[in-house]
Design a binder for these strands. Structure first.
Length: 218
DNA sequence: GTCCAGGGTTCGT
DNA sequence: ACGAACCATGGA
């Protein structure tokens, strides 16, 4: 199966996902940090806390006490390390001049700048670049790696950058790469959450080969 | 109620 | 290059 075909099947099975679930680019960035190694439902509660206390704002987060911030972030797990990372990110974001200034960078420079921030790794950087700045980078996460491996499209031990290059190359001629990459990642997450859970066999074998949603029926 | 899986990044070694 | 540390939540 080719990537384009996988996309079509996922899209047909699950429909438009309208990601990222956030009210502003800055909320996307906060969510990208908080969702590191944790499920989205946990992140929503932490973001709701920030909203309730009028702290979903780079300056407010930058100036909050570590203790206060960690308390609000508690539902998203790893609250001490995330308070530190989020605060570090917000101080950097302000120092850079905020969204407008960063948006003047080209995609490669923007991605590189984000990766230099302590607490921002490749997936978090790409979440931000794609979903907050609408640039064409393909986000690789554990679900993506697992699905591509099960489908036999990749070996599985590739580096993050190798997988990203593989996905971007495989979709190099699409008309609207930002829109396709946006939807593709969302669909992979949807498939992992819904289809695999629904079918108990999914976690223990390459069920995608037999998955009615995206693959050949048995 | 108890146990356990899942999910990124950094920092040691 | 590899393992350890960081944590609440939801399902079994």
């Amino acid at each position: 199966m080719r990537l384009r075909q996988l996309y079509d099947r996922l899209h047909k099975a699950y429909g438009p996902q309208h990601w990222w679930p956030a009210d502003s680019p800055f909320e996307v960035m906060v969510g990208a940090v908080l969702t590191q190694n944790t499920s989205w439902s946990n992140v929503e509660k932490a973001i709701a806390n920030l909203k309730t206390h009028h702290h979903l704002d780079a300056e407010a987060i930058a100036n909050a006490s570590h203790q206060q911030l960690a308390h609000w972030l508690k539902p998203s797990g790893y609250f001490n390390i995330k308070a530190k990372r989020l605060q570090n990110f917000c101080r950097w974001y302000q120092a850079q001049g905020g969204y407008a200034a960063l948006n003047r960078l080209d995609t490669v420079a923007l991605r590189k700048a984000l990766l230099d921030v302590n607490g921002i790794g490749p997936e978090t950087a790409d979440d931000i670049v794609l979903y907050a700045f609408h640039r064409p980078v393909f986000v690789i996460d554990a679900y993506t790696r697992r699905l591509l491996t099960r489908l036999g499209l990749v070996e599985g031990e590739e580096s993050y950058e190798e997988l990203r290059a593989f996905c971007e190359r495989g979709l190099v001629r699409v008309a609207e790469p930002v829109q396709i990459f946006n939807e593709f990642h969302a669909l992979i997450v949807m498939h992992a959450k819904v289809s695999c859970k629904k079918n108990p066999l999914c976690e223990s074998c390459a069920i995608e080969r037999h998955c009615p949603a995206i693959g050949v029926s048995a």
